[in-house]
Design a binder for these strands. Sequence first.
DNA 1: GTCTATATCAAGATAGAC
DNA 2: GTCTATCTTGATATAGAC
Lengths: 221, 221
Amino acid sequence: MGIAFDLKRLQWRMTARASIRQQLQRVREEAIVVAVNRLLATKGYDAMTVDEVAAEAGMAKASLYKLFTSKEELAGAAMVAVLDRALAFVDGLREQAARAEGKVDALDQLKAVARWAMQSQLEGDMPSLPAQNSSLSASLQANDDYMDRLIALSNKLGTWIADAQARGKLNPALPAELLLYTLFARACDPVVGMLKASGQYTHGQILDWVNSATFDGLSAR
Amino acid sequence: MGIAFDLKRLQWRMTARASIRQQLQRVREEAIVVAVNRLLATKGYDAMTVDEVAAEAGMAKASLYKLFTSKEELAGAAMVAVLDRALAFVDGLREQAARAEGKVDALDQLKAVARWAMQSQLEGDMPSLPAQNSSLSASLQANDDYMDRLIALSNKLGTWIADAQARGKLNPALPAELLLYTLFARACDPVVGMLKASGQYTHGQILDWVNSATFDGLSAR
DNA sequence: GTCTATATCAAGATAGAC
DNA sequence: GTCTATCTTGATATAGAC
């Protein structure tokens, strides 16, 4: 009996200590991911060095490599994080729409998502990756955490796209694939950064204009 | 007299040989620029190595470095070349328009330029550079050959943009700067490459759709 | 003027002390 | 588990022979 009691206490203590360790580790991981996110947003993957990540996260490079085994894995973690933010935003919109009982237009939801993504870019929170053919693409496509979220997000946006096309709000002549790709591309649209760099416009103006260019086009209506 | 004659012959021969040398050198330079152009279009600047350029141009790396002093200069030469192609295309359009005596719309000219750029991208001839903050950007902005052409092209497109806005063909609510930046950005639009990679569409379809998305927008009209 | 061979360096990754 | 110091590699750039 005494022995059993002591074992339980011991197990509890071990569990508690393991949990605390895990929490500490998780805090450090998050600091790293935040650093990677900002560096990817500002410099891009190739220009980002692991030394910079370690410095910005406040630890030695060797410590960082205990938690992430490669630079590619760092980028993957940051991309997973941004997809999680996007999914959370989309789910928030769905809940709002559910409360509004059908008064919300799928097209407006898509515009809100595009605006959110571009705002993230303006604030330096939208990591951008080399579009094609890098060794990074391959490692991301082999990353299940990443691919699952990418597919989940594509499906949710795809539902809105199909809805908006069926109701004649989005151009039905364009393939849904193009509409989806265009939304993803506009999240990293360099035009946003160029207008910001010109320094003449407010963030609100930039968001309005680029969203207008995306959905209404450059031609006069 | 005899001496003067010999000197003239000698000078002529030296000039001829120098000219031939220059021509040979120019052919080699063009081969290098073509190689850089394709590598920038397919892999991007960071993934491109000078060894690859030398191999594709059919010479040793050291020989290449006699003609171009750095990797950045290679990229600059390729960007100058693509701007020259763009300027030639634009001038061709202007001549056509002059012959048509005012029957050509500035908006149609802009659409033609966008289509040409995207077609170049589909054919692997449109070099793409890291958009922002790289060391490359700085070296390009210090490259007069590059900047002169960039400004010349911007001015020519800017004329058409102002014209199309004045005639109510392009959305007058959007700043001309945004319209110009958007045209440049669409030349490298990753959506083109994604649709091509999906393998389901012809080049013509892709060009029509992306141009429609750019000028008419994603929303139904 | 072209090539082979090499210098140089930056950056990803790791060993080993504490 | 964290850090300092180091290994290793790949890529830019150059020296020197021919």
